[in-house]
Amino acid sequence: MSNTRTVLHDPDGLIEAKLPPDRAPYEALVTAVLAWTDPDLDPHDYEQIALQLTGHARAVAANVRHHAAALPKNDGRGALAEIVLREADRRLSLPPTGTAHCAQNRARLVRALYTRLDRLTEPAPATT
């Protein structure tokens, strides 16, 4: 087994934007995490769930950023996407902790990013 690894440098998120993440398993995870009322997991389990959701949130945020950048400047959906992306950047700058609260916050973030992505990928509203 080799102890070497390759680091991918993609500062513009172009690879993530071109490879849409597999949405269904993460939506199921988000639904399950948000349904918790009194979970009794080990802190490491909470941390692993939060890390999974963090990585996925970053991928979806890159996708949102890519679609928002392609919009005309006068399209209000881009401005709303920027607000969601700023909040995502703020939340993702905090390290995940081994708590249910942290995992649920990451799940809410993934849900908000998917909501915004759906708004960006639907046809623009007709103007009269």
Rank of each mutant, 00 (worst) to 15 (best):
residue 29 L to P: 05
residue 79 A to G: 12
residue 18 K to E: 15
residue 80 L to M: 13
residue 73 K to S: 15
residue 107 A to T: 00
residue 16 E to V: 13
residue 35 A to W: 07
residue 15 I to A: 12
residue 48 Q to G: 11
residue 59 A to D: 08
residue 101 H to S: 13
residue 45 D to G: 13
residue 29 L to S: 05
residue 85 L to N: 01
residue 107 A to G: 03
residue 107 A to N: 01
residue 34 L to M: 06
residue 101 H to M: 11
residue 19 L to P: 11
residue 31 T to R: 14
residue 91 R to T: 13
residue 50 A to N: 03
residue 66 H to S: 10
residue 62 A to K: 08
residue 98 G to D: 02
residue 76 G to L: 06
residue 60 V to T: 05
residue 116 R to A: 11
residue 91 R to F: 08
residue 71 L to K: 01
residue 44 H to Y: 15
residue 28 A to V: 12
residue 126 A to F: 07
residue 124 A to L: 08
residue 7 V to W: 10
residue 91 R to A: 10
residue 105 N to F: 06
residue 98 G to L: 02
residue 113 L to T: 00
residue 3 N to E: 15
residue 125 P to A: 02
residue 76 G to C: 04
residue 49 I to C: 03
residue 118 D to G: 03
residue 7 V to T: 12
residue 50 A to S: 06
residue 93 S to C: 06
residue 112 A to V: 04
residue 123 P to D: 02
residue 15 I to E: 09
residue 65 R to M: 06
residue 82 E to T: 07
residue 74 N to P: 14
residue 115 T to Q: 11
residue 75 D to F: 01
residue 117 L to Y: 03
residue 112 A to F: 05
residue 63 N to E: 15
residue 109 L to A: 00
residue 126 A to D: 10
residue 19 L to A: 12
residue 36 W to Y: 04
residue 6 T to V: 13
residue 51 L to H: 10
residue 63 N to A: 15
residue 124 A to G: 06
residue 117 L to R: 03
residue 114 Y to S: 03
residue 107 A to E: 02
residue 66 H to L: 08
residue 18 K to D: 15
residue 2 S to Q: 07
residue 86 R to Q: 14
residue 93 S to K: 10
residue 83 I to N: 13
residue 81 A to I: 00
residue 2 S to V: 08
residue 94 L to E: 13
residue 49 I to V: 08
residue 109 L to E: 00
residue 36 W to F: 05
residue 91 R to N: 09
residue 93 S to I: 10
residue 42 D to L: 05
residue 53 L to V: 01
residue 79 A to R: 11
residue 116 R to D: 09
residue 67 H to E: 11
residue 82 E to S: 10
residue 108 R to K: 09
residue 99 T to G: 00
residue 76 G to T: 08
residue 61 A to L: 02
residue 10 D to L: 04
residue 101 H to K: 13
residue 42 D to A: 06
residue 40 D to T: 13
residue 103 A to T: 02
residue 96 P to Y: 07
residue 63 N to I: 15
residue 89 D to P: 07
residue 113 L to Q: 00
residue 28 A to Q: 12
residue 51 L to M: 13
residue 101 H to F: 12
residue 80 L to E: 15
residue 16 E to I: 12
residue 86 R to A: 12
residue 62 A to S: 11
residue 48 Q to C: 14
residue 81 A to M: 00
residue 102 C to I: 07
residue 39 P to I: 07
residue 82 E to V: 04
residue 78 G to T: 03
residue 51 L to S: 10
residue 66 H to R: 12
residue 25 P to D: 04
residue 42 D to G: 06
residue 88 A to K: 01
residue 16 E to M: 14
residue 97 T to V: 09
residue 55 G to A: 06
residue 8 L to N: 09
residue 37 T to A: 09
residue 124 A to M: 05
residue 16 E to S: 12
residue 114 Y to H: 07
residue 98 G to H: 01
residue 67 H to T: 05
residue 72 P to V: 07
residue 119 R to A: 13
residue 84 V to S: 03
residue 86 R to V: 11
residue 63 N to Q: 15
residue 1 M to S: 14
residue 69 A to T: 06
residue 70 A to S: 05
residue 117 L to Q: 04
residue 78 G to L: 01
residue 75 D to I: 03
residue 87 E to I: 14
residue 53 L to Y: 02
residue 64 V to N: 00
residue 80 L to I: 10
residue 6 T to R: 13
residue 13 G to P: 06
residue 53 L to P: 02
residue 103 A to C: 01
residue 89 D to T: 10
residue 23 R to N: 09
residue 105 N to A: 13
residue 39 P to Y: 02
